[in-house]
Amino acid sequence: MGNEYVSKTPASEEKLLQQRFMVWVYRWMTLGLALTAVIAMLVFYNKTLLTYISNSNWIFMGMILAELAVVFILSFNIQRMSISMAIIMFLLYSILNGFTVSVIISLYTAASVGYTLFIAALMFGIMSIYGYFTQKDLTRFGNLLTMGLIGLIIAFIINIIWFNSTVYWILSIVGVLIFVGLTAFDTQRLKQIGESATPGEASMKLGVIGALTLYLDFINIFFLLLGMSARRS
C-alpha cells in the first residue's frame, strides 16, 4: 500500500496525487461502513446476543465509551502509530459501532431503516460531491458548523435530562443540517490536504483520519434521521 502515493511534483502530478488521496479516503470510509453493516446484521439476526446487549445498559454504554476511546486515541495519537495500527483502530471502531447500530435499528421497522439509510446516503453523497467540486471556500462555514455541533451536543445532553419530544425533533433537524454541512466542509478540507500531501505513511494516516471523519458525518446523519422516524417496531 505504501507505493500508492507517488512523489509530489509541482503541477503535472499534483492532481493525480490528490485523486489517489481521496480514493484512499473513500475506500476506507466505504470499507468501514460495510463492516459496520455486516456486524450490525449478524448481531441483529442473533436474537440471543441482541437481547443480551439490549437488556444490559452497562454493556451498551460500555460499547459507546469504547467507541469514543478508540476515536480519541486514533485522532490524537495518529502521528505515533504505524499505518497498520491506524487501520486496525479504524476497523475496530467500525466493528464496535456495528454492535451499537444493531441495537438501535432493532427499535425500528425494516422499511423505516431502509428508507432512512437511502435518504442519508443521498444527502451525504450530494453534499460530499458539492464539497469536492465547489470553488467556494467553506472554511468560515466549517468554523460555524463546529461551534454549532458543540452547542448541539450540550443541548442533547440537557434534553436527555429534561426530555421534550418537540425539542428533540428540533435538535434532530438542526443536527442533520449541521452534519450535511460538515460533510461538504470535511470533503473540501480533505481535498485540500490531498493537494499538498507528501508521499508515504504520513499521507496514508491522514487518509485514515479523513475516512473516520466522513464515516462519522454519514453515521450521524443516519442516526438523526432515524431518530426522527415514528415507525418503531
Rank of each mutant, 00 (worst) to 15 (best):
G210R: 04
R189G: 02
S229I: 04
L226S: 06
L214S: 01
K191S: 15
A197S: 13
S196R: 13
I219M: 11
D217W: 00
S203N: 00
E201Q: 14
L226D: 05
N220T: 09
Q188V: 14
F222V: 01
P199N: 14
L216D: 02
D217N: 14
Y215M: 09
G210A: 10
T198Q: 14
G207T: 07
S196L: 07
T183G: 09
S229H: 07
L224Y: 07
L216V: 12
Q188C: 13
G227F: 11
V208S: 05
Y215I: 00
I193D: 04
L206F: 13
L224I: 00
G200W: 08
E195P: 01
L182D: 06
L212T: 01
I219G: 05
Q188I: 14
L216Q: 02
I221S: 05
L224P: 00
F223S: 07
L224S: 06
F222L: 12
R189W: 07
G200I: 12
L190K: 12
L225P: 00
F223I: 15
T183W: 02
G227C: 06
R189F: 14
F222A: 05
A184D: 03
L225I: 01
F185D: 03
A184Y: 02
I219E: 09
G207D: 06
S229Q: 10
T198H: 12
P199L: 11
K191Y: 11
I193E: 09
V208K: 04
G200D: 09
G210I: 04
I221W: 06
M228A: 14
G194P: 09
E201T: 08
T213S: 14
T198R: 11
Q192F: 10
L214W: 00
G227L: 10
M204E: 10
L182T: 08
Q192N: 15
I221N: 06
M228G: 15
T187G: 13
M204A: 09
I221Q: 04
I221T: 07
V208M: 05
N220F: 01
L206H: 14
I221F: 08
K191L: 08
F218H: 03
I221H: 06
P199E: 14
L206E: 09
L224N: 03
F185W: 15
G210Y: 04
Q192S: 15
P199I: 07
L212R: 04
F218G: 03
L216N: 06
A184M: 08
